[in-house]
Design a protein around this nucleic acid. Structure first.
Lengths: 345, 345
DNA sequence: CACCCGCATGAAATCGTTTACATGTTCACG
DNA sequence: CGTGAACATGTAAACGATTTCATGCGGGTG
């Protein structure tokens, strides 16, 4: 049953050459004579040889794999990024490992273990890695084999690829302002998240620039989730002075918000406008179709993948250590925003 | 910079034992004397030793990884399944590789290559693998290291874990019938998909049992996507005799459908009821909240993972080769279904 | 004609584990 | 007191590739 495993040795025998030659045929075919090369490839075909990665990796002192750290695999936001990453690595001989960090489940040494022995490089979509983990990684020479995508860790020298979050927030506010809104609320992400800060900052900047009124309770703490959108809705419903528009830190939050507002008789966009962030596939098909800030997630993933690939290649393509690649965002206007109702409460 | 890699040999030296003992301390600590065990673990700590997986895998003739084949990574439906799978393997020393098959992009030998050299086992969420690929896998002795989850391939001896699709469809129809609907349409998945067949079959069975009218154009071809829901909506809008309810093969299709119907003035559920399938997170937050058939995706993933784990362990836990584990489904009633409008067209 | 260089190839060391087998010690039992 | 089982540990042979270094050959050059 278990077919006898065919080794490089067997190929060598069949081709009447040495194992070294077979190995060379695979890695640097141009260095062989036409004749030998053909013989080897014929032998490979006829024996059905497939390289044993464990052996190769052992000898080459590498693992042939990269690890993607995802904060939450069940969040559809990440799937396109993964698709982008995986698309790039598919072309290489790297395997892609995916691990869910579950918010914080990166048990102490778990990441360290992976970083140091199981993979050649890491792309973290999680900007909330414990400081000690970061220390460890940085210290152990894994520093130039790890990058961030989407999220990042503040004050770390690791490169990162990210959307222009500040600009995205500005676009959202500007759009609402253009429609005539003045009283604009914002539902943020979790306080310890970098995206939360960037987007809130953009929002605040633009609000100041446009001279819009600021009320403390118009900044509502959320956590990117549907559920937190629902909670924010309840908060808004009980406000003495309601905003006429809400800028959400994610599309999911926007959905949670709209769904709950609608259930309570507040119509979007007639009574209240909502802008999301991300532009996940569903946003176009929500009711109402969601006005949102589009992130080019697939592109972002692909960029990150290539960046890591460059670093792993050890090529000279390693300019600034702390480089930041910014991916543009764009405002997508759909049906969840409209001018504010004529008679403000 | 590159810390000199510490080998098992170094640990052995530090602990004044042989490498064999160190190895044993790691794999079968109970076989060592208290004293030695302690010495070894101290040495491991002090040297900062971490096992080299390539070496271990080479020696043990395994890869330490499993592969998950996903038809489409960007579909949020799969993320929870992945989370379930990955949760189980997290507890083991297996790594989880994830590959997007892109519908059919499993280039000829690509899967074969992986199956045979890079991973110990495979969970395919893709039931549309090319026949030749299946042949190859089956022939090469990978047969007892591969299982299906969610989808499956007809007439293959490989085990699979799946939701009770037929029952799900029955539940949906029964629910609509109970509300008073008689004219029920169904949007299917792609014709070559096993889920399409199972769900349509359940639907047809129940329709027959309940003596509901059948019209050919009430079975509309779709493909699980948002876009196909939109297309189906257009189809329905132009029908001379419209159904009063539609059972969709996925939540995404339902969203596409509802979104487009709403845009054309058809109200859900007042004018037309819609039932989905899957119960993805968003369904609860859609407007209207979607009545749907819930699949326990995380559980399904976890089951599949454990099933594969059993088989890999080589344990006796390998009963019937073609076994099928069925995961129950349940009807979740929300706001997208209601009694049909009083005056039928 | 002697020399050297470049080229294609082969022999063998090496990567870091696990594990079959050998060794030595202890202890129970007749 | 001799024998052997049970146990703890060590020795060394794999696992299957890559790569350094050596070798032999042919041809251009002075």
């Amino acid at each position: 049953m278990a077919l006898k495993t065919v080794r490089i040795q067997d190929v060598a025998q069949a081709a009447r050459v040495s194992t070294a030659t077979v190995s060379r045929a695979l890695s640097t075919p141009e260095k062989l004579s036409e004749e030998t090369r053909k013989a080897v490839f014929d032998a490979i075909r006829s024996t059905g040889y497939r390289v044993n990665h464990a052996a190769r990796n052992l000898r080459m002192q590498r693992t042939g794999a990269v690890l993607i750290l995802v904060p939450n695999l069940s969040n559809p936001f990440f799937s396109q990024i993964l698709a982008g990453i995986s698309g790039v690595f598919m072309e290489t001989d790297y395997s892609v490992l995916i691990a869910d960090t579950h918010g914080r489940a990166a048990d102490d040494n778990r990441l360290g273990d992976y970083a140091l022995t199981r993979v050649d490089g890491i792309i973290s979509l999680d900007g909330a890695l414990p400081a000690e983990t970061m220390q460890e990684v940085a210290g152990q020479g894994a520093a130039d084999r790890m990058i961030f995508a989407c999220e990042w860790v503040q004050d770390t020298p690791l490169p990162s690829v990210r959307s222009d979050n500040v600009e995205g927030a500005r676009l959202a506010i500007r759009h609402l302002h253009g429609l005539g809104h003045r009283n604009i609320a914002h539902i943020t992400g979790p306080e310890d998240n970098v995206l939360t800060h960037a987007r809130r900052q953009g929002m605040l900047e633009e609000r100041t620039r446009l001279n819009l009124p600021a009320r403390d309770d118009w900044i509502i703490r959320g956590d990117f989730s549907l559920e937190s959108g629902r909670e924010a809705a309840h908060r808004i419903l009980t406000m003495d002075q309601r905003p006429t528009a809400v800028f959400c830190c994610s599309d999911q939050v926007a959905f949670g918000l709209i769904s709950t507002l609608t259930a309570h008789g507040v119509r979007v966009p007639q009574d209240l406008s909502v802008v999301g962030f991300d532009d996940i596939e569903l946003s176009e098909y929500y009711v109402p179709a969601l006005t949102t800030i589009r992130q080019f997630r697939r592109k972002l993933g692909a960029r990150a993948a290539r960046l890591l690939l460059d670093r792993l290649g050890g090529g000279p393509a390693t300019p600034v250590p702390g480089e930041v690649l910014t991916v543009e965002v764009e405002l997508v206007i759909r049906d969840s925003t409209a001018p504010p109702p004529p008679l403000a409460p």
